[in-house]
């Protein structure tokens, strides 16, 4: 053991100098072992968030420059809006991929972000029918299908996908509503999506097993 004769304190740590007075430590015994360091040694870490921040900075700068150029040339904002939406899309995808979550949740989020991104681009270029007619309903169908497969394959942990399934099936009713309000030009993808979501939702509500009733209770406890 080491000792600081100025502070009258013993040390059970491999320090050369006293923490309190910075004086040199002495061994208390004539033949003494160096006290062990009982923690993991820290090494220099690189800032993992630097590249994300740099990427985010570039996205903001490029968006600002394109909006400025559009504005200065007296043009409509369609071109700069596409840049802004694409940048936002890239940042969200980056965040989703780097987030600590299950891969299935990541795939679902990416599908939904992509669907919303294409709708926004559709609005920016003044032609959103292709995204509302095809991409949005098929993204939802793909999502419900994916969760259904995961639920069947991973029966033991089916409840892990329960909340996602409920949310996505409710969103899946939206294409039907858009079709009803005449926002779509092609009806069948929205109809398929609406029907598939409705059937899934009805199955969740009307075919409850004891365990799914329990899951409802857990997820919706107030």
């Amino acid at each position: 053991m080491k000792y600081c004769k100025t502070c009258n304190v013993h040390y059970d740590a491999p320090l050369e100098h006293c923490l309190l007075c910075n004086g040199e430590l002495e061994y208390t015994e004539e033949i003494a072992d160096e006290p062990a360091y009982k923690f993991k040694i820290i090494t220099k870490k690189s800032s993992s968030r630097f590249w994300y921040r740099f990427f985010f900075f570039l996205a903001v700068v490029s968006t600002a420059i394109t909006i400025y150029l559009d504005y200065m040339d007296g043009l409509s904002l369609s071109w700069s809006l596409i840049v802004a939406i694409t940048n936002l899309y890239a940042v969200l995808i980056f965040r989703t991929l780097s987030a600590a979550s299950q891969w299935s949740a990541k795939v679902m989020k990416i599908l939904m972000i992509t669907a919303v991104g294409t709708i926004l681009i559709g609005f920016a270029i003044g032609d959103y029918s292709w995204s509302i007619d095809y991409i949005f309903p098929f993204a939802i169908i793909g999502n419900i299908l994916l969760i259904s497969i995961l639920t069947l394959v991973n029966k033991k942990h089916w409840y892990d996908y329960f909340a996602s399934l409920i949310i996505i099936t409710i969103i899946g009713l939206l294409p039907g509503l858009l079709d009803l309000l005449k926002f779509t030009t092609v009806s069948w993808p929205s109809f398929v999506c609406f029907s598939y979501s409705s059937i899934t939702l009805l199955a969740i509500v009307f075919l409850p097993s004891k365990s799914s009733r329990e899951e409802f209770k857990r997820r919706f406890h107030v």
């Binding site: 304190v9 320090l15 923490l19 006290p35």
Partner: peptide, 13 residues
């Protein structure tokens, strides 16, 4: 009071 100190600080940190 007799005090014995241990720490996770290392010289060079």
């Amino acid at each position: 009071i007799d005090v014995t100190i241990d720490t996770n600080y290392k010289e060079g940190y």
